[in-house]
Write a protein that binds this DNA or RNA. Sequence first.
DNA 1: ATCTCAATACGACAAATGTCTTATTTGTTG
DNA 2: CAACAAATAAGACATTTGTCGTATTGAGAT
Lengths: 217, 217
Amino acid sequence: MKIKVAIAEDNDFLATSFEEKLKLFDNQIEFKFRGKNGNDLLKKLEENHNIDIILMDIEMPEMDGILTTEIVSQKYPQIKTIILTIFDDEEKIFKSIQSGAIGYLLKDEKPITILNGITMALEGGAPMSPIIAYKSLELLRNPNRISLENSKEDFALSKREIEVLEQLSQGLDYNEISENLFISPSTVRKHIENIYKKLHVNNKMKAVKKALKHNII
Amino acid sequence: MKIKVAIAEDNDFLATSFEEKLKLFDNQIEFKFRGKNGNDLLKKLEENHNIDIILMDIEMPEMDGILTTEIVSQKYPQIKTIILTIFDDEEKIFKSIQSGAIGYLLKDEKPITILNGITMALEGGAPMSPIIAYKSLELLRNPNRISLENSKEDFALSKREIEVLEQLSQGLDYNEISENLFISPSTVRKHIENIYKKLHVNNKMKAVKKALKHNII
DNA sequence: ATCTCAATACGACAAATGTCTTATTTGTTG
DNA sequence: CAACAAATAAGACATTTGTCGTATTGAGAT
């Protein structure tokens, strides 16, 4: 079974160049489609998400590669994304990793390196250009260099809502929470409804994930 | 100028095996000496610290590889240490990186991989076996999982069950998971039922919590 | 050749969850 | 005081989830 690959890249010339590189291995790799930006890729994935690997550019108009990677890895966790970029600054690397990318290669890598990266990713590894591996280790050694003041979105959850959210995150159901907080199950449900609206989610798991991500709980 | 390499390894057989591997490239590499443990290596370094790379075992008597790496990188910051080990658990990887190791390879890597690792390290990169790169990324994504004393319980989840669990953790419902994995919703439910039994839980949140705690996902 | 298990799949039913509407009480703030 | 937000509560309905039982297929192990 061939490896099904999609590409996200706004620049026509580069996109073609990647496709050419992949064609060198067309006994192993099947190029599926290319998105001109994040939105375009997402639209195409909705029609066909039978994809193993996405090669993702970071710099794209409309929706960039990092946001796109985040959405893809939330919606299609089985698809692995490899970031391909000319940049190698720490912030981008860190954000890419946080977004769920499995690897990070420089754009001018040789065709064989890209193939290796793809197979490596599918075998449970993380393909990284050595220089990027080095920088990610630096980040691991010294995590406080990471500016944690990202987003700082204010969801304005009330004290009670946060309490409920904490209980939710423990896997308790409405009745258990109501008993713990000495309020009726109806009220718990109402709180949760309000939490969902404030966090823009529609189920427990997503609420807890988002709350953890934003240090609400 | 040849690359000067030292080895720290208590096991005679393995030490010899490494030396043999290095000899395959004796036009590029010059094997200098071997320490039987951390203390021994340090003593030898005092006599001759004109070394480029140390290949360091972790498991050694008297003084282990992590402590030794820490001392070496403090005392001889110009020397780069590559950890060679059979283990790949997160705690060791993290500690090794903290100790100042520049790379982390599995002991059974092929000779050429070790050579590549050495040159990579000298060129400013960080050699890591893909599986280790993957784990270090996991650490970067979620630093609080470090040193959570993994009880190493074996829940014996199948590969497919773990995939399903990962999707669950993203907040996806049965239908979405079934579409992502190209199986029927019934099958997804069956997998989840089996997961619950194996983890001794009875809902999604608890399953995901337990899986995270035990590094299953 | 047989056994076992992972992976696949369906049906049924009860319980929990998500969504919407409405309503009362209390505390805060302009 | 009036307006507003937070916390409380209930009813109704559709959807999702949790828990059974049952069954087929294919890969590996014995």
